[in-house]
């Protein structure tokens, strides 16, 4: 049974007026699926994340995970990883942080120890178990958060821009960790505004002004430069090149954001079709 948001509408009340963050949004994720949610700032991505874990009650519509609704049911089934590791870690050791969530589920102490060991091993943090998270790098801290969430055995994990505050090596670490989450069977929602993150996903959803403006194959989304710009998404320079190549009739590789992969595909294309003018 999937994580399901059905016909969700939500408006924030601001001073005199209201701001409609989500308007009749239908969204679902299956266990083991990896879905990217992209969109410009203010499109409703964070509201979606908070809705999915039961922190916000929709004005209209229903949120359910594995058929269960309500904040308690959702917090057990939907784990969340946010942007700023500083606001998500409260313990003075890595293993205490990972144990924190499980403890809240009423799991007996020896089972807690087992789950902590397993989560640390899965995230490659076993040799850092006694270290103070405040002394770790941004990427390491986010991995601690992911391990803490993983130890609660959620069916779904929503990551709300988990790499925005990290440098390139940190980003890599976190993206690898997300792959691990999918491998162990979680349904993953990766909210991001970096189009590179869309590539490894099974499905891409684009939010714009509280609506779902596009839902489909990441490959199709990335290949269409015009649509990317319409949706307010900023392709990187390489992706713009890929868009031009696609428009000129080339078949894009599965990962058009990787320079060497794209170059190989282009070389192949030119070999078959010969040089062309645009």
């Amino acid at each position: 049974m999937p994580l399901r948001l059905e016909h969700i509408s939500y408006a924030y009340r601001l001073g005199r007026g209201t701001f409609k963050a989500l308007d009749d949004v239908c969204f679902h994720v299956d266990p083991g699926e990896r879905v990217a949610v992209v969109g410009p700032n203010g499109s409703g991505k964070s509201t979606l994340a908070r809705m999915a874990q039961g922190l916000l009650v929709p004005d209209q519509g229903l949120v359910s995970a594995d058929g269960v609704t309500g904040t308690e049911g959702l917090c057990r089934r939907v784990g969340v990883v946010g942007q700023d590791p500083e606001d998500q870690i409260i313990s003075s050791s890595v293993q205490d942080e990972v144990a924190f969530g499980i403890g809240n589920l009423g799991v007996p102490v020896d089972e807690v120890q087992r789950r902590v060991d397993a989560a640390l091993a899965t995230m490659g943090l076993s040799d850092m178990r006694r270290r103070d998270p405040a002394m770790l790098s941004g990427g390491e801290r986010q991995r601690v958060v992911i391990a803490a969430v993983l130890a609660m055995r959620p069916s779904y994990v929503v990551l709300d821009e988990p790499t925005t505050m990290l440098d390139t090596p940190g980003r890599r670490e976190v993206l690898d960790a997300v792959t691990v989450l999918v491998r162990v069977g979680c349904g993953v929602v990766h909210i991001t505004h970096d189009l590179d993150d869309v590539v490894p996903c099974d499905r891409a959803v684009v939010l714009h002004s509280g609506h779902i403006a596009y839902e489909g194959e990441p490959h199709d989304l990335l290949g269409d430069g015009g649509r990317l710009r319409e949706l307010g998404l900023g392709p990187s320079r390489l992706l713009v090149v890929a868009n031009h190549l696609a428009a000129a009739g080339m078949t894009l590789p599965a990962d058009p954001t990787h320079p060497r992969v794209l170059a190989a595909a282009l070389a192949d294309h030119v070999r078959r079709v010969g040089p062309t003018c645009r």
Partner: peptide
């Protein structure tokens, strides 16, 4: 803002007010 973020995080980890289990 931080307090809000922390409150969200505590809710997300299903904190109910019980004492934390301390390993070690």
């Amino acid at each position: 803002h931080r307090a809000d973020a922390l409150a969200d995080m505590l809710d997300g980890r299903c904190f109910t007010g019980a004492l934390r289990t301390r390993l070690d």
